[in-house]
Amino acid sequence: MVKRYFVWAILVLFTGGLLLTGCGGQQATPQTETEWPQGPVELVVPWAAGGGSDRMARMINDIIQKNNLMTEPMMILNKPGGEGQIGEAYLLNKPGDPHAFCTVASGQISIPLSGQGDIKVTQFTPVAQVAADVELLVVRNDSPYETMADLVAAAQAAEMPLKSGGTATASEDHICNALLCRAAGIELNYIPFSGGGEVMTNLLGGHIDVAWANPSECMSQLEGGLARALAVSTTERLELKPDLPTFQELGYDFTFYQLRGIVGSPDMPAQAVQGMIEVLRQVVETEQWQKDYIEANMLVPIFLAGDDFTAAVIQQEQEFAEALAMMGLYKE
């Protein structure tokens, strides 16, 4: 009995001592030397493994390793959940850490605008945008709608609004749906699903009439002849799909890009930001990036660093806020 209490006493003293001295080990070591990085670089992916952001992070890491672009290893840390907010909260708790980064996709910008979380992308140190994703409007292969004009005519004539599907509420898919409805003067009954796979299942099963998807979410079905795309949200036609018209050229006045990039911890030292920008610049110039990432996922190549990236994020935030306000989903 005595011995047991002895163990406990030691443990309690140990704990107390630790808490008192605040031995956090969390504070970043002050940067004294000029070299960056000084230790392993951590790239947080606030989404599940295997998703779009995860694939981007792992591709970046693979290219860095193959080409020796960084002196220290890079660790990919999946912190999924809360629509990106959980991973972001983790990064938010590491202010000034020169080795902590996080991937950004547009969903992370739109989520706080509709009251689904508090952490905004603008709270972090912008590093760079490495690609832009686009939205396609997809129908089943045997759908009666051959063109956008068919769809719009049918939607105008329909008694019950046609059903469209996409991932989540107040998401990029949902915003695109609203932008198209406004531009074409139609009504589409948007049904939110839990992920791109579920959206395609319901499209192929005939439970919805049209679907919103990124190219990477629907490429298998497009190429396999199960589904067709009617239009794309870019300003110019996609290089890989020259036959696919844009909404804009068809007279539906809206364009939509999703940005994919990387941000650093809040108040990250400038030298670390610069170091990461240089690494990423080299990454996007490799052939592997162009072929295995950009082309394979049908993305638009773009590289914006520093202030340009900040401006892009702020601009997108404003556009999303306007769209969500129009949809009645904007929350302060």
């Binding site: 298998s220 190429e223 002849g225 199960l226 295995d292 394979a296």
Partner: peptide, 10 residues
């Protein structure tokens, strides 16, 4: 997809 194999009918 990372290996360039597109699952699906193709």
């Amino acid at each position: 997809m990372m290996y360039g194999l597109q699952p699906g009918p193709l």
